[in-house]
Design a protein around this nucleic acid. Structure first.
Lengths: 223, 223
DNA sequence: AATAAAATTTAGGCTAGACTAAATTTTACA
DNA sequence: TGTAAAATTTAGTCTAGCCTAAATTTTATT
């Protein structure tokens, strides 16, 4: 492991992990935006992470970074903390799913391994957090996610909501209101070529709902 | 309030508060020992805290520091966090009373006011933590503590254990074993002039126990 | 009261992790 | 394929909070 993995480094690794999940390598700019710091600051840190012993990222000038095995383990540790904490806060302290993110973002860096283990135990070793996101296992393996964006469905397709993006509290409140939450079944009644709107029938809801891509791109389903 | 109250500053204030409780002002050295840093570093921080706007401590060269009203409020906020967290960890995650201190020391700096309020609510607004220490109220008032050291009792006196010092896990485990925990009644069967040993009859325990001052000075009772 | 020991402060330095401004490289597009 | 825009890196600063060594003040002891 590197000299020490600070809270700041944990944040870098977590966001690089998430960026790596989508497009291959994480760009300086994207990292800077997510961490809300100047791009120049990111460059400095990436160089440091790349030359740590052992290296936490693979970095080539002007080409962004990828996590090494070590970097990924450290990232998954933080992500596991985060998602267990979100679950814990909801079930134990009655937080709603749009309130947990900020709190977990701070706590994830300071809880002990013992705390992590006790939470997992108390929660019955959950595999998903309140937003349906997969929780890395205790030995730091991220389960495979099969889900696809709701936006990719077309008329008459049916699916089960699996997870929703957790970083916009307002969106989360809206989704809760219209019943679009994990494990709920939906049917696509129609699709609009022009704006990408989907008209959905949501399990347990009396009337259909029309959602734009700003929403449907943030909701993931299993067909 | 000062520019920002960092985690480091919170730690200073917390320890100064505790030192102020005993002897009047907190000395540079005592603070350095508690924080495990060099005395010279403490001097620097004290000067900074004294010239913050508003000042958090009153500092006179070579004479230690006292908290201002603002400094005390900030200290009590941290102490309230700490003691609520200890209680929460014990009741919710099954921690034992000798394990909670370290965890609470990290968490106390990062939880939100919302988290604090939810814990207090979930725990039924407790007034003491698992070690019997008083929890500052939500409006940051420290309740008055009437208890006196067990070491000050003499033969035939009876008392109720109110609280025990929480910073030595080994001592805590020992006290738990011999049944010396908050709310338990004890009777002093004998006192030794020479070594200060007390022979105690502890409520709920079959045989008496002999305790030295290293222990009896850390246990506080109400007569 | 002199002086040694202990406590404290001053002075100067270091590291982590951020910043801005300027230079450079890459990308996009006419 | 040349050039402008965007992205990235370099260079130089800054702050917080710690450090050591040396100087000073206080306290304790003879």
């Amino acid at each position: 492991m590197p000299d020490t993995i600070t809270q700041s480094i944990q944040d870098y690794l977590k966001h690089i992990y998430e960026l790596n999940e989508h497009g291959g390598s994480a760009s300086t700019n994207d990292i800077a935006i997510r961490l809300n710091i100047a791009p120049a600051s990111v460059t400095g840190m990436l160089q440091k992470l790349a030359s740590a012993t052992p290296p936490l990222v693979i970095y080539k000038k002007h080409q962004g970074v990828t996590l090494t095995k070590n970097g990924e383990k450290a990232a998954l540790e933080v992500i596991r903390h985060h998602r267990l904490l979100e679950t814990f806060l909801v079930t134990t302290l009655g937080y709603s799913w749009d309130e947990v993110h900020r709190e977990a973002d701070k706590l994830e860096h300071v809880i002990s391994e013992d705390f992590e283990a006790r939470m997992a135990e108390a929660l019955g070793h959950p595999t998903r957090d309140p937003h349906g996101e997969l929780i890395p296992t205790a030995d730091l393996v991220m389960p495979v996610d099969e889900s696809c964006p709701l936006a990719s469905l077309r008329t008459d397709e049916t699916a089960t909501v699996r997870r929703v993006s957790d970083d916009d509290p307002a969106l989360l409140r809206h989704l809760r209101e219209i019943g679009v939450v994990p494990e709920v079944k939906i049917v696509v009644k129609s699709y609009s070529e022009f704006d990408g709107n989907l008209t959905l029938q949501v399990e347990g809801q009396k009337s259909n709902v029309v959602l734009g891509t700003a929403v449907t791109s943030q909701v993931f389903v299993d067909k």
